[in-house]
Amino acid sequence: MAAFRTVFGLMLLVTALAVVGNFLANPARAESIGGFSDDELMDGFQKTVFGVEYGSVAAGSSVKKFESTVLVRVINLADKDRQRQIAGFVSQLPRLVRGLDIRMAGPGDNPNFTVYVVDRADYTDTVRTDVLGTSRGAAPGQCLVRVYPGSLGIVRSTAVIVSDEGDSLFRRCMVEEILQGLGPMNDNAALYASVFNDRSRHDSFMPFDRAVVSMLYDRRIRPGMSRSEVGTLLPRVLADVRRSVR
């Protein structure tokens, strides 16, 4: 679920996972992007990159993506440390998403994507203090990511992922919140082959999602582009993505 706020002139975008069911249609088609038409994949891009469940239309009217290297820092506050799993997932992303430059932050780096790993008992306090910057207010969903977009691309993202409610929920939250923190922030119930759908049971980086994120990180898709500007480019972008994503 996505909610949008404007504070001191900076648009702040928050999306949270709230699992509401286990709906899955045509599971065989989810195994590769070859089972999806161009129209389905381009529609998935439009729904995740531009769609808005909550908030103003303006909040979801333009492309949001990192233009600089994404440097991921994990802050573990949970009894069960999940840093190795997150690092393993992040290490796979450059191979799975053409055009995405992402790695774990090292000594001396200035991280621009922070992932808090917490136990459920600490979730609300962490969201309020370290993400929303307030002592009050709701901490929506079972996990959450906040994106800070700027005119030249996403400035930074901050995610909060719960560690102590089972491996499946952790994987689901890790995959969805990290991916949404890269820019495709909307959730849509029509996307049955995607983690960008609270009704699906997927907890891995699905081929459908690899196509969507790869389209987003094609060099021809620029931060701030409108739906119509992107629409003229997508057929050519998707044709190239089909050659690299399986």
Rank of each mutant, 00 (worst) to 15 (best):
M1A: 12
A2C: 07
A2G: 02
R5C: 03
R5Y: 15
V7E: 06
F8Y: 08
G9Y: 05
L10S: 02
V14R: 13
V20I: 02
G21P: 06
F23L: 08
L24Y: 02
N26H: 10
A28Q: 15
S32T: 15
S32Q: 13
I33D: 12
F36Q: 10
S37E: 05
D39G: 03
D39Y: 10
E53D: 13
E53K: 13
Y54V: 09
G55V: 08
A58F: 13
A58K: 04
G60S: 15
S61L: 11
F66T: 03
F66S: 07
E67T: 10
S68C: 00
V70F: 05
V72M: 02
V74M: 11
N76F: 03
N76S: 14
L77V: 08
D79I: 12
D81G: 11
R84K: 14
R84E: 15
F89C: 11
F89G: 06
F89L: 09
V90G: 04
S91Y: 00
S91P: 00
Q92G: 13
L93C: 06
L96G: 04
G99I: 10
R103N: 01
R103T: 00
G106T: 00
P107Q: 01
G108Q: 05
D109N: 01
D109W: 00
D109S: 01
N112G: 00
N112Y: 03
F113P: 14
V118I: 01
A121M: 05
D122T: 01
T124F: 05
D125T: 14
V127Q: 11
V127K: 07
V127I: 09
R128N: 06
T129D: 14
S135M: 08
R136I: 12
P140L: 11
G141T: 06
G141R: 07
Q142P: 01
C143F: 04
L144H: 11
Y148S: 09
G150N: 08
S151A: 08
G153L: 06
I154F: 12
I154C: 06
S157E: 09
I161M: 07
V162A: 02
S163D: 12
S163T: 12
G166L: 03
R171E: 04
R172V: 00
R172C: 04
I178E: 02
L179W: 05
G181A: 07
G183D: 01
M185D: 01
A189V: 11
A190E: 15
L191K: 13
Y192W: 14
Y192E: 10
Y192Q: 12
D198P: 08
R199L: 14
S200W: 08
D203I: 02
S204G: 05
F205M: 08
P207F: 00
A211D: 09
V212E: 04
V213R: 05
I221S: 02
G224V: 11
M225Y: 05
R227S: 10
R227V: 03
S228N: 01
E229V: 06
R236S: 15
L238E: 09
A239Q: 10
R242K: 14
S244R: 14
V245L: 12
V245E: 13
